[in-house]
């Protein structure tokens, strides 16, 4: 190994440590007893309370919140993440299909209207959105949690760009082969977009999983909390009353909240990279 290679590796290793150390400290601290954390501060080495803490957080009622367990919150987050990602892909693919392949008046202005909604993120339209969802009676429901978020200008834009790069001859060949509009979409476009769909699903799952503001104002009942909301709430719960603060549980919850997105990216990273760089046409 040459000198420059060693230096390169040293820099990369430092970077890796810098990025992962906080996560590691959170994990290590979550495996200690609350007294240790209170007395000695954050821990760099794992302690002996791993099973105890995680069992209580995940499965025991009242272990982390008053009623809901982390397991239920994981489920809620999963539903939000998957529903959010799938909904976005379905809606934006259909929108892009209409914009690219159907000649109707105002197709171009409509596309720009969709694109301009990028300027209006949820935070800007949160009061009207809340009002609409409330009037529809969807407060504290899963539909109310997901539906207002699934329209996606970015997704529509990506799919539009992708569809426009598909050669016209494929459409013409399919027309001669007697494919209907739906047939062309289902038999040709969707399979061609496979890697693209995977990449967008992954990104959107992580984005959906990390949604904070909307679930926070949407959900009032504990059993509808997502993990991200749970983390926020647990500090309130912890500081209430005169008991010893259960910081190890907060850390455990944080670790649990980061695990699924990490797993998704790790497992699907090949697809993810392919979707971003490859064009198989």
């Amino acid at each position: 190994m040459t000198g420059s290679k060693i230096i390169t590796h040293l820099i990369l290793i430092c970077g890796a440590i810098f990025m992962t150390l906080p996560v590691w400290v959170a994990f290590a601290s979550s495996t200690h007893a609350p007294e240790t954390l209170l007395r000695e501060g954050l821990q760099i080495w794992p302690g002996g309370h791993f099973l105890e803490t995680y069992n209580e957080v995940l499965f025991v009622e009242g272990g982390v919140m008053k009623k809901v367990t982390a397991m239920q919150m994981l489920g809620n987050s999963m539903i939000l993440g998957v529903g959010f990602a799938v909904g976005k892909v379905v809606i934006s693919m259909l929108a892009a299909y209409a914009i690219v392949y159907f000649r109707f008046r105002l197709a171009v202005p409509l596309f720009w209207v969709i694109f301009l909604t990028l300027l209006l993120p949820l935070e800007v339209r949160i009061i009207p959105s809340y009002k609409v969802v409330a009037d529809l009676g969807l407060l504290d429901t899963r539909a109310g949690l997901i539906v207002p978020l699934i329209a996606s200008a970015t997704g529509t834009f990506f799919f539009r760009q992708f569809f426009r790069s598909v050669p016209d001859e494929l459409l013409e060949a399919a027309r001669l082969d007697g494919a209907t509009a739906w047939g062309f979409f289902k038999d040709i476009l969707v399979p061609l977009s496979k890697t693209m769909i995977a990449a967008i699903l992954i990104i959107m799952f992580v984005v959906g999983w990390n949604q904070y503001l909307w679930p926070l104002i949407m959900t009032t009942k504990e059993e509808n909390y997502t993990l991200v909301i749970g983390i926020k709430q647990i500090y309130q719960v912890l500081s209430e009353g005169g008991e010893l603060p259960q910081f190890q549980k907060a850390f455990a919850l944080t670790i649990l909240a980061t695990l699924p997105p990490v797993m998704v990216v790790l497992i699907f990273q090949n697809w993810f990279v392919k979707g971003l760089v490859e064009s198989e046409k």
Binding site: E169, E172, A173, A174, R175, L176, K281
Partner: peptide, 20 residues
């Protein structure tokens, strides 16, 4: 419609469905 004209076409760039 093109599919009911009973014609078949061979394209310059083949236009094969790449995933099939």
């Amino acid at each position: 419609s093109p599919s009911e004209r009973d014609v078949a076409m061979v394209f310059q760039n083949y236009a094969l469905y790449p995933h099939m």
